[in-house]
């Protein structure tokens, strides 16, 4: 299932990285059925950093997981790099995910793998076999994130900020078209949080990566190209600072 990767995902010319139209989403069944998203429309420009804000329970994570192929689209349309996700087969979703990078609130590193090995996992998914090359690429990126002397540390021996930077490296090492980050700084102190986001932004700019980030941190807003605010499952504000 994960061997033939190469270009089973043809680039669709001039398609925006993300285009959401008329997206509704429901949780639960029968009596307990509850609508979490109402008619969401959102188109994102390539290479931009979009910040998603809003009170707790407003649907930010739900939107993110739908765009990130982590949840099935029920109603409406999500186009990712020109591919419609509504009704897509699981096998295709697996392929689409390989074009994405995820940074979670918790670092979600594999505790049994070293920093370098964790980053290598972001490369191996593309079917790269050359281990020496993977090791080099992972080391290079970790060094760029200031972890050159922590390559062979297990996550348990790294600080929170260092772990999150490893997670950033893992998300970016495969040169994803889009990076999704859900409150990546929530578990960090302000200083290391800002360091992580600055690095993410800088690397994204260098590589032309589109970034979607959910955050409550006001200082991050200054770095955003666009700020989208949600309330009760709807987009209520859309600004460029």
């Amino acid at each position: 299932m994960d061997a033939p990767v190469k270009d089973s995902l043809p680039a669709v010319a001039e398609a925006p990285p993300i285009r959401v139209t008329g997206l509704n989403h429901f949780f639960g069944d029968g009596e307990a059925r509850k609508q979490a998203l109402f008619d969401v429309d959102l188109t994102v420009r390539p290479g931009s950093l979009t910040v998603l804000m809003g009170p707790s329970g407003s649907g930010k994570t739900t939107v993110l997981t739908l765009m990130g192929c982590l949840r099935d689209v029920q109603d409406g349309s999500v186009e990712l790099l020109g591919h419609e996700l509504n009704g897509a087969r699981e096998a295709d979703l697996v392929l689409y995910r390989r074009r994405l990078g995820f940074i979670f609130q918790a670092h979600n590193l594999h505790g049994s793998l070293t920093a370098r090995q964790n980053v290598m996992m972001g490369l191996q998914v593309h079917g790269h076999k050359d281990e020496a090359l993977q090791r080099k690429a992972a080391a290079h990126l970790l060094a760029a994130l200031g972890l050159g002397d922590r390559l062979d540390y297990l996550p348990g021996n790294l600080s929170g900020g260092q772990k999150q930077r490893v997670a950033v490296a893992r998300a970016l090492v495969g040169n994803p078209a889009i990076v999704f980050a859900d409150e990546p700084t929530a578990a960090l102190d302000k200083e290391s949080g800002m360091t992580v986001v600055r690095m993410l932004k800088q690397m994204g700019r260098e590589r032309g990566t589109t970034t979607m980030m959910v955050t409550h941190d006001n200082r991050i807003l200054e770095l955003a190209d666009r700020i989208v605010t949600m309330e009760d499952g709807r987009i209520v504000k859309d600004t460029a600072p």
């Binding site: 697996v94 689409y96 995910r97 995820f102 979600n108 594999h110 998914v125």
Partner: peptide, 18 residues
């Protein structure tokens, strides 16, 4: 014990066979 790690790998695009 490793469900979260496996879920992460799934999100990264690894398939069931791995």
């Amino acid at each position: 014990d490793h469900l979260a790690e496996y879920a992460t790998f799934k999100a990264m695009g690894y398939g069931q066979s791995m």
